[in-house]
Amino acid sequence: MSTLVLLLITGVGLGALYFLVASGLSLIYGLMHVLNFAHGAFLSLGGLLGWEVGRRVGDGTWGGLLVSMLVGMLVGALFAIVTELVFIRRLYNRHIEQVLVTVGIGLAAVALFEGIWGSDPIITTKVPWLRQTTEVVGARVPNHIWLLIGVAVVVLLAIVLFLRFTRFGLVIRAGVENRTMVTALGIDVRTAFTIVFAIGGAAAGLGGVLASVYYGNVSAHQGTSLLIYAFIVTVIGGLGSLTGAAIASVLIAVLQQLANFYLGGTGDLIIVLALAAVLLVRPSGLLGRAA
């Protein structure tokens, strides 16, 4: 029983991490029809620079972690904005080329990070409380899981409120549904593109810092490996659906944890099969609109 509880809670924690990457991917795809392969690089840079600044402020302290998170968000957002303005925008409406460019940026950026920070993971120092555990119905849950879940919930709420109550949110929601009609109402939808990239980049950068807390290290490759899971989550949830991404993140991560424990480490395999199954039964994903 306590094992199951532990697996479920850590699964939700991992799902929180997936969500931070997948939320941006899903919004970007929904609005722009670009599958952003550079998203992992946003995460890695957020994690790496967040760590660099955070440890100077206070290694292993709450203050340091907070600064890391802020820096991670900022860095992720800036990287994303530059990517959108300099590269994506010039290839307006040429979706294949846009995907290719993000592939190139992803490869080049990660290689550059390797050049700067090396290819081996760098061990990070955790805040003492995050190293401890809390007992929940007999299960000793690592405290960093609560941080992950808490932050992901805040991010989810913030994005939902932004989409719901701001003019840009309105444009983004309408654009996900029918971008052509948004421009036909006289709205320059490109501003919304930049904003969506910035939001996605900020969430990914924050995800980078939290990934370093979760795994206990940072590395140039962290984003790339998380990106594949995030893709799977995004597609299962339905490209363009934020709620879908949130639900699929948790489902997939929990499934992965359970399979890893009960089915002899087959978690990765199971979620890949889940993706294939979902796509074949419901090509638009769980909450996606039929094309």
């Binding site: 929601r173 052509t180 036909a184 320059d188």
Partner: peptide, 28 residues
């Protein structure tokens, strides 16, 4: 010119098949 620039010059468009935003409210 891009579509949105043309529309902002005062050219309004009522498309075939309405193309209202189904997930938004009337007010939105």
């Amino acid at each position: 010119l891009r579509t949105d620039r043309i529309v902002r010059q005062g050219v309004a468009y009522v498309p075939e098949d309405r193309e209202v935003f189904a997930s938004l409210t009337v007010e939105e």
